[in-house]
Amino acid sequence: MHIPNLPAIRACRPAWNKGCIVGQKRPLLPKHVGAIRVRLEIADNFRDLALFKLAIDSKLRGCDLVELMVADVYAAGQVKERTSIIQSKTQKSVRFEITEGTRKSLLRWMEQPLMVGSEYLWPGRFHERLHISTRQYARLVREWVKSIGLEPSAYGTHSMRRTKVSQIYKKTGNLRAVQLLLGHTKMDSTVRYLGVELEDALAISESVEI
Score class of each variant (00 low, 15 high):
Pro113Gly: 00
Ser58Asn: 01
Arg161Cys: 00
Asp188Ser: 12
Lys18Asp: 07
Gln78Trp: 10
Leu150Tyr: 08
Lys146Trp: 11
Lys146His: 14
Glu151His: 14
Ile3Met: 15
Val178Glu: 00
Arg139Trp: 02
Phe46Glu: 09
Thr102His: 04
Pro14Glu: 11
His127Pro: 07
Arg129Leu: 10
Ile98Met: 01
Lys89Val: 06
Leu140Phe: 13
Glu81Arg: 12
Ser147His: 00
Gln112Met: 13
Val73Asp: 02
Arg142Phe: 00
Pro27Leu: 00
Gly19Ser: 03
Ala11Trp: 06
Asp200Pro: 03
Tyr155Arg: 02
Val94His: 05
Ala50His: 06
Asp44Ala: 12
Leu140Pro: 04
Gln112Ile: 02
Pro14Ala: 09
Gly34Gln: 13
Ser93Pro: 06
Val116Gln: 11
Ile168Met: 10
Cys20His: 08
Thr157Asn: 04
Ser93Met: 13
Ser93Trp: 11
Leu6Lys: 13
Asn17Val: 08
Glu100Arg: 13
Gly101Leu: 11
Thr172Ser: 14
Thr102Ser: 13
Arg139Asn: 15
Arg13Val: 10
Asp44His: 13
Lys164Ser: 07
Asn17Leu: 04
Ser118Glu: 11
Pro4Phe: 11
Arg10Cys: 10
Ala11Ser: 12
Gly124Phe: 14
Lys53Asp: 09
Arg139Leu: 14
Phe52Tyr: 05
Thr185Trp: 09
Lys186Met: 11
Ala138Leu: 06
Arg103Leu: 03
Ile42Arg: 15
Glu209Phe: 04
Asp200Val: 05
Pro152Lys: 12
Leu114Val: 08
Val196Cys: 00
Lys53Gln: 14
Ile86Trp: 12
Glu197Thr: 12
Gln91Glu: 07
Ser159Ala: 07
Ala138Asp: 09
Leu114Ser: 07
Glu100Ala: 14
Met115Val: 00
Val22Glu: 09
Ala15Cys: 09
Gln24Thr: 10
Leu140Met: 15
Ser189Arg: 07
Arg13Leu: 14
Cys20Tyr: 03
Ile42Val: 14
Ile210Asn: 14
Arg139Ile: 11
Glu151Tyr: 12
Leu182Asn: 02
Lys25Ile: 00
Glu197Lys: 11
Lys80Leu: 15
Ala203Pro: 00
Glu206Trp: 03
Pro30Ser: 04
Ser88Pro: 07
Thr90Met: 08
Cys20Trp: 02
Leu182Trp: 01
Leu180His: 13
Gly117Asp: 03
His127Arg: 15
Leu121Met: 07
